[in-house]
Design a protein around this nucleic acid. Structure first.
Lengths: 202, 202
DNA sequence: GTCTATATCAGGATAGAC
DNA sequence: GTCTATCCTGATATAGAC
């Protein structure tokens, strides 16, 4: 196995462990064990833990971009693309109830550590934000596309955090349904932030 | 200074440090230093870190209950009480942008650690949930009070998480305004989850 | 009830053999 | 490129003097 293969395995193992156990709680030994590597050899590939974190963030950004590109390919309309985003809450519900959102929880942890990479991690949100804003603009909401993008991003984060604490799948489903209904009502001519109306889909 | 005073100081220092730096990242030495205590003496008061965590969670629950009771005293209508809850996002915006929501971030961290106290921490949400549900019921929304309580709790969590990542005060203010507008529209006869309407307050 | 001193352990990081 | 052996630091935890 070449060095670049080993490196990739290390980053993928670190990615998973950082998500499941947190950045601080994951030791070099944990990652080395997951890859089947001695601790000593580990340092041939990565000199510091922060270096691994940087590689993990880069991997996540690449994966995110690939996912967004795929949604853009697969879904013909902007509304369906945004719906792809909303429905990752359902798709990943088991992991979210156990470990939260990979992006939100990493940003939270790095913020508390005041880690040098905290802004790099926050860029993951930026990718979603800009992609979502583009979809809302395509939906005819050019004027407030960014506000709408942040709003739906905010809701997905709120659902993830509460889902982890409550571990209630019904809660996720209800809120996703509400997000779908909210999206259906986003048509040109509406003003930015969501307002309640006289009927509901639930 | 008596032992119970020292104990209280330890818990308060731990409360602050767990919030600002995280549970794992906070060492006994950090807490001892903050209180002005030797590390050795520390163990006279608390045997394990988990014991301190338990005391911190108990303190937070007591403080939360006191805050909810005060809101109930000070605000004459259910709507104003719920507004008190929504506006902690503005009141605490500086700390939230730096460290996130104390409840959400602690639950997230303990979930990843699969810590024995993770469900105790989640009870903090339960206190807000039931209090909010009581207010929505008093507002005339008995049928879906709990759903509405979880919805507004979810939004406050989402705003806190994104605020920490983006550190954008304008974002917080816009979303709080939207939450206020959403609350204004919650009247008896509405069905549970929020829907957009034809106009916005922003 | 508070201190100093110390045991023990785990994690990050390095050196050098193969 | 992978290993074993090792160092250093910091963290939990204890013992015992005052």
């Amino acid at each position: 196995m070449g060095a670049s293969d080993t490196r990739r395995h290390i980053i993928e193992a670190a990615d998973r462990l950082f998500y499941e156990n947190g950045f601080e709680a994951t030791s070099f030994a944990d990652i080395a064990k997951a890859v089947g590597l001695s601790r000593g050899n580990f340092y041939y590939h990565f000199k510091t833990k922060d270096e691994i974190l940087g590689a993990v963030i880069a991997l996540r950004i690449a994966k995110t971009q690939a996912m967004l590109d795929a949604w853009e390919e697969d879904a013909p309309t902007p509304a369906e693309r945004i719906r792809s985003f909303i429905h990752i809450l359902i798709m990943n519900r088991a992991k979210i109830m156990a470990y939260g959102c990979p992006v939100g929880t990493l940003c939270n942890e790095l913020a508390k550590l005041d880690h040098v990479s905290k802004d790099d991690a926050a860029k993951l949100f930026t990718h979603f934000r800009h992609w979502l804003a583009r979809q809302f603009a395509a939906l005819g909401r050019e004027a407030d596309a960014d506000t709408l993008a942040l709003h739906i991003l905010m809701r997905s984060q709120g659902v993830a955090t509460l889902a982890t604490a409550l571990r209630d799948e019904g809660f996720i489903r209800r809120e996703v349904e509400a997000m779908d209904a909210w999206l259906d009502a986003q048509r040109p001519g509406q003003l930015s932030l969501p307002q309640p109306a006289s009927r509901s889909s639930t």
